[in-house]
Simulated scan of single mutants.
Amino acid sequence: MKEVKIETTLQVFDNIKELPEALQALMSQASEARQKAYAPYSKFSVGAALLLDNGEVITGSNQENASYPSGLCAERTAIYYAGAKFPKAKFVKMAIIAGSQLHPTLTPIPPCGACRQAIAEYEVKQDTPIELYFMGETGKVVRSNSLGNLLPLLFDKSAL
Rank of each mutant, 00 (worst) to 15 (best):
K17W: 03
K17G: 05
E18A: 14
P20W: 00
E21R: 11
E21G: 01
A25P: 01
M27Q: 10
E32Y: 10
R34D: 03
R34Q: 15
R34Y: 04
Q35P: 02
Q35Y: 03
A37Q: 06
A37I: 02
Y38V: 15
S42F: 05
S42D: 03
K43T: 12
F44Y: 14
S45M: 13
V46N: 10
A48N: 04
A48T: 11
L50T: 05
L50C: 09
L50P: 03
L51P: 00
L52N: 03
L52K: 07
N54Y: 05
G55N: 08
I58L: 09
T59Y: 02
G60M: 06
S61N: 10
N62L: 00
Q63F: 10
Q63V: 10
N65E: 10
N65C: 12
A66P: 10
A66L: 11
Y68Q: 11
P69G: 07
S70L: 14
S70A: 13
A78L: 11
A78S: 08
A78Q: 01
I79N: 06
I79L: 15
Y80C: 08
Y80G: 00
Y81Q: 15
A82H: 04
A82T: 06
A82P: 01
G83H: 13
K85Q: 14
F86L: 08
F86P: 03
F86K: 02
P87A: 09
P87H: 07
P87G: 11
K88F: 12
A89R: 04
K90C: 13
K90I: 04
V92F: 01
K93I: 08
M94A: 07
A95S: 11
I97N: 01
I97P: 02
I97Q: 14
I97D: 05
A98K: 07
G99R: 02
G99D: 01
G99P: 03
G99H: 01
S100F: 01
Q101F: 00
L102F: 00
P104A: 11
P104F: 10
L106P: 00
L106H: 08
T107N: 09
T107M: 08
T107I: 11
P110D: 05
P110Q: 07
P111A: 14
G113R: 11
G113C: 06
A114D: 12
A114H: 10
C115S: 14
C115P: 03
A118C: 12
E121L: 14
E121V: 12
Y122F: 15
E123M: 07
E123H: 06
V124C: 04
T128V: 12
P129M: 10
P129V: 09
F134L: 07
F134D: 00
F134M: 04
M135K: 15
G136T: 02
G136I: 05
E137C: 02
T138N: 13
T138F: 11
G139I: 09
G139D: 08
K140M: 12
V141G: 03
V142R: 04
R143P: 02
R143Y: 13
R143W: 13
